[in-house]
């Protein structure tokens, strides 16, 4: 029954292809190539060229100048601070993200859609507003300002504020990546582990985590890239104190606004590190996407009734001989 119409389309398609040497669904070649050319030209001018330029400018004065501008104490302090902030913010968000994704993917509860929306909040709030929120909370004039001052705890214009702002801005990455992966994995493997006597903790480490590991790594590298690259929110809470609260993106801006040719080159040198991070992130992301697609295909294959291989028939034949 279903075969008849498809044969008809096949015939029509063949006729069309003879007369115009193209498929009915395809645009004429001129449109196709124009579109491709526009897309390529656009990404070349707006994406690739600036990126290449960053590296070109960074190395304009040679290797030695490049190296010097990175190891110069102020920039070196900025690099260290960025690494420290990422080292605190990323693990925190991994914990939050895994917990939130776990809750959303494996349980049914009343405020689930609210939680899902809340996780996305940092994506929709401007980073500057995010920074301001923390100033309003912990700044001198903020709600907790008096109390914090009395206990000599400094959050705004200090490292804790930078960490808080970074955690806020990068909050969604891990959870967002994990939720679909965890939902796809389902909970049967975990249930199987439970029936075999495994504790919840052990099930988590030996079954849940390995099954979402690629999604988790993907989330972590995206989270890390954003944590190191965040400018807006951090800029508001930082105070721009050289060697104390200046992260790499802030340092790039400060150097660039320095105006001199030397500081300009130094700005590009620090910026090239961030650009390099972006490239590495992209490379890992591409690899992980390829790997996830493969795992997904395998999972699909596992869920489907498979055509029995010869080995199954052979197995049954042997059983009958017993």
């Amino acid at each position: 029954m279903g075969g008849a119409p498809s044969t008809d389309t096949a015939i029509i398609r063949r006729r069309v292809s003879r007369s115009q040497s193209q498929r009915g669904t395809e645009e004429p070649p001129l449109i196709k190539w124009t579109l491709i050319a526009i897309a390529l030209a656009f990404s070349l001018v707006f994406l690739l060229l600036p990126l290449v330029n960053v590296f070109a400018q960074a190395f304009a004065k040679g290797w030695q100048a490049y190296w010097n501008s990175l190891t110069e104490p102020d920039s070196w302090a900025a690099i260290r601070l960025t690494l420290i902030v990422a080292a605190i913010a990323v693990p925190l968000n991994v914990m939050f993200g895994v917990a939130a994704a776990w809750a959303i993917a494996k349980f049914e509860f009343r405020w689930k859609s609210l939680l899902t929306t809340l996780i996305d909040l940092p994506f929709s709030v401007s980073p500057v507003v995010a920074g301001l929120m923390f100033v309003l909370m912990f700044g001198l004039q903020g709600y907790f300002g008096k109390w914090l001052e009395a206990h000599e705890i400094k959050i705004i214009f200090a490292v804790p504020g930078i960490v808080l702002a970074t955690v806020f801005v990068t909050f969604p990455f891990v959870a967002r990546e994990l939720i679909p992966v965890m939902q796809a994995a389902g909970s049967e493997q975990e249930q199987a582990a439970l029936t075999l006597g495994a504790s919840g903790w052990r099930t988590f480490w030996h079954v849940t985590l390995p099954s979402v590991k690629w999604g988790l790594i993907y989330g972590i590298i995206l989270c890390n890239a954003r944590a190191m690259g965040e400018f807006g929110a951090v800029s508001v809470v930082s105070g721009h104190i050289i060697r104390q609260t200046e992260t790499m993106p802030l340092r790039v801006q400060a150097l660039y606004e320095g105006g001199s040719a030397v500081s300009g080159a130094a700005a590009f040198a620090v910026a090239s590190l961030l650009a390099l991070l972006a490239l590495i992130t992209l490379a890992i992301k591409t690899f992980l996407e390829w790997k996830q697609a493969r795992d997904y295909a395998r999972a699909q294959q596992l869920a489907m009734p498979t055509p029995e291989s010869d080995s199954d028939t052979a197995f049954l034949a042997r059983q009958n001989l017993r």
Binding site: E188, A192, T195, H206, V207
Partner: peptide, 20 residues
């Protein structure tokens, strides 16, 4: 008694083998 304490063997419809 929890699942773990019941000493049962359970075979799931799609087998739920640990794929890792």
């Amino acid at each position: 008694l929890s699942v773990q304490e019941r000493n049962i063997g359970f075979v799931f419809q799609n087998y739920a083998l640990f794929k890792n």
